[in-house]
Structure formats: C-alpha cells, structure tokens
Design a protein around this nucleic acid. Structure first.
Lengths: 248, 248
DNA sequence: CGCCTTCTTGAGGGGCGTCAAGCCCAGTGG
DNA sequence: CCACTGGGCTTGACGCCCCTCAAGAAGGCG
C-alpha cells in the first residue's frame, strides 16, 4: 500500500481517508501538510448524523469538532420559555465546534442528514498551535460567519415577513450547490428544513411562512412543486424582493 | 533616551506611546514583542473621532484598522430605502477594521467621542503573518463578536419590545465600565447613543423605545434621571426582564 | 386504512408602527 | 434678557402586520 500510483509530491504521504475527501482543499484541512493530516486523521471519525438529531446540545461542554462533508446543520439558541432562534446554517466544508471554548450557548442540530468528519477539539487546537496557517483558515471562516450573522441581523431587525422569506430562499440558493449556479435564472431548491425551522430562522411563525410562500407563489416569484421543493423563477427578481415590501 | 529608568525586561524597548497605553495588555497588542510594537507604532496615529462622524463608510474599501482606546463605536448596515440596523457595538479595547478584506458592508460610526489608535491594515496583517499569537488574539476577539452577534439575533428575532430594551440596558451595564460592576445591585448608566440609534439597534422605532423605557420606569425596574442617564434599580430583576414579557 | 406529523388557510386580536402634537433644552441672535 | 429655532424626546390616537387559535388538507408510514 506504500506503492501509490499517483506518487506526486502532494499525495504520497497523505492519509487515504483524506485523499478521498472531496472537501479537503476547500475546508480548513487544506492548510495542512501530510504529516499534520496524518496526525489529525488518526483521531477522526467519519459519521452520518440523521436529520433532526443533535451534534451538540446548547449550554453543554463539548470537546469535539467536526468538518461538514455534506448536508446542512443548524445553529440554534433557546430561551427558558421555549422560544427558539436559529442563528446560522452551516454547509460543507464548514467546521462546527467550539474551538477555544467559545460558542457554548449554541446548539448544533442536523437539519438534513449530515456527513461529518469529527475529531477531538484538543487535537485540532494542538495542530493550530503548530500550524498558524490552519488557524488563519479557521479565522477566515469565522470572519465569514460573522459577516453572515450581521447580514442576518439586518434581516431579522428590519425586514418584513415577505422580505424575510425571500431572503431565506436567496440564502439557500446561493449556499446549496453554489457550483450549480446555472446559466439559467431559474433555480430548483430543495428546502433543507421544515416550516417550523424556517420560522425559527426568520423570527416568524409557521403560519406566516406558509402565507408568505403562497404570497410569493401568487406573484409568480416562485413555484412550489411540493412542500419541500421550491422553484425560483427568476433569481434576480427574488433578490429585489429581499428589500422591497410586497405585502400590498 | 536609551537610558530608561524602568529598565526591566518588559519595558526597556517598548515605544513610549505604547508604554502609556492603558489598554495595551488587554487589546491585541498584548501579543506583541517590543520589536513588533515598534514597527506598528511607527505607523500609528492616535486621534479622537467626534460623536456622530464615520470611521468607515459601509460598502467602501478601507485600508486602515484601529484599536478603540475609549468611547463606543457602532457598526451598522443600511438598506437601499434607508432602513438601518445596528449590528454591533464596540468598546475598548476592541479592534475595528476589515482585516483580510471582510466586513465590507458594515459602516463604523462613533456613537460617543471615540479615542483611536489607528494604523494601516497592511502593517497589522504583515505583523500577523510573523506573529501567530497576534492573529490568535484577533481570532479570539472575533469569536467573541460572533457569540455576541448570535446572542443579539435571538434578541432581534424572538424578544418583545420590553425584553429588547431590557436586553439593551443589560448589555450596556455589562460592557461599559465592567470593572465598575459594583458590590451594589444598582447601576448608573450613561446611554452612549440617542433613541434613534437604540431603535436601529433593537429593530424598533424611537416611539416604542420611549414607551418601553417609561414602561420599565413605571414598573420600578429603572429610574430615568435625564434622557441620557438611566439608573438600573436592580440588575438581577432587569436580567429576568430580558426573558419575560412585561407588556401586560 | 388509520394515525401522526406537517402544512395550509381562515378569522380574529394584539403589539408595534405610523402619524401627529407638544414638551424640553441647548444654541443663536436680537 | 428673552424670543426664536431646531433637534431630541414623550405621549396619544389609530391602523396594520403578524401572531394566535382553530379547522382541515396533504403526505408518510406501519
């Protein structure tokens, strides 16, 4: 097995599990040398989390981090009386987990089935201290998440219900299969979560989500194939619906 | 000048401007050696930004970053029709600025008079590449901002108007003069911004802010000394008002 | 087919926005 | 000194957007 037919510089000593990894170069692992990948891969577990189950309970400690290989995870916060707010969605190749002990009050749950590459927090932190480039990549990812969180604060604080739903659909269209951003202006969206999750993401109720989806449908902005499949007729018109109240 | 009466290891070669800096050890500069401080200090400008003026216009490029030495800066986002959302407040010793080209669509404005230590982005990024500990500190700060942003998303999406105002007052009480977190349960708050800013921070209108402040006053949770000064009677009662609707 | 969860649609009510009037206070100028 | 002005704030009246409650439709699965 030491005889590898693709014996170029980059692949010779890279763990097989990483060689086969489709998101390695986009994720934080792209910053790692073969030696470090080997170290990390000794502690990794690949697993599939079924839709609806938790990767990390909010408010509890967790000493594991995971790269998302596929699927969608949701980050949520819970109030004592049960009110809930989803504060972010994570897609491949994002890394989830509370590095440096932050993110403690956020729960992580699989929205769809999620494929993970999971490892102990201590190992990734140790490698970070040796490989600044790894911390740099993670830093950049967190800066992106911060930008997205602040974008969403504008949506939560200042947009109407229609605008919120349009913003949600646009977010999905630009994050799921971004390479499939076709030449065409129409996009077929597989909604990765149910109405109650969408409501918790947008700070609305399920009834309002439902009403605004039919509102958008009646205006010809979207077509609803089935409850989980939405066809965006024209992504540009949807984009303009994000800032323009269509309630009247 | 090479003769320094405090010739201990730590201070001998540290620039005078940094020796005098009251937030140096708490801010990101705490990660720097004398040599790096010297390099950075050659490009720093200390200045005071008067309340209301912009440090950075949203959507524009900026090649400067700044440490906040004192005062409060607000980060805001603007929609094309004028709706606005404040997405964060920054206090000393936070660093503001778009390192690694993120944060582009966020405007930074002085809420109060703000004392800054400002330097070019290129210099801080260069030093970061030499000193991973500096990037680590900045990374930790951004993780804290991400946590705060997500906390605030819960506030924006799921809390009632009273709860939002209570949350705002609590946020200020715990961020302004945190050392003055006295033995006493009552806290005198100097509001760093006017009602319209508070409204933009909470996703409400100025009228609602005003009404909910008097609501909290009538319930004995706060005392309003003048329009800019609020006395929190009991910080614990205020905290519980953050999750409990008092509209009835 | 029955049962459960999820979703849609309608009717009614309430919380917050909108509009408007007036107060407070600092700044300015006569 | 006071009148005038203008920005910031408060308070009231009213209306609308979205929540609440409820009923029923649509799937999914044993």
């Amino acid at each position: 097995m030491s005889q590898d037919e693709r014996k170029d510089i980059h692949n010779s000593d890279i763990p097989l599990v990483c060689q086969a990894c489709e998101v390695r170069h986009q994720g934080v692992c792209g910053a790692l040398e073969a030696e470090q990948l080997l170290k990390l891969s000794k502690h990794t577990i690949r697993k599939v989390i079924p839709s609806g189950s938790e990767l990390h309970r909010g408010g509890e400690d967790s000493d594991r981090c995971s790269n998302i290989m596929g699927g969608v995870a949701k980050l949520s916060k819970l109030m004592s009386d049960g009110r809930q707010q989803i504060v972010g969605l994570q897609f491949a190749p994002d890394m989830v987990g509370r590095t440096f002990a932050s993110e403690s009050t956020v729960a992580v749950e699989a929205a769809t089935d999620v494929r993970l590459c999971s490892f102990p927090r201590s190992v990734i932190e140790e490698i970070m201290s040796e490989a600044p480039e790894l911390e740099h990549r993670l830093h950049l990812q967190k800066l992106k998440e911060l930008d997205e969180a602040r974008d969403w604060m504008l949506t939560l604080g200042r947009k109407s219900a229609v605008e919120k739903v349009a913003s949600f659909l646009f977010l999905l269209a630009t994050h799921i299969d971004p390479e499939k951003a076709s030449d065409d202006k129409s996009v077929t969206l597989e909604l990765p979560m149910k109405r109650s999750d969408i409501a918790d993401f947008l700070g609305l109720t399920i009834e309002t989500i439902s009403r605004q989806l039919t509102n958008l449908r009646k205006r010809g902005l979207i077509d609803i194939q089935d409850r989980r499949t939405v066809i965006i007729a024209d992504i540009d018109r949807l984009k303009s619906a994000m800032e323009q109240d269509l309630s009247k």
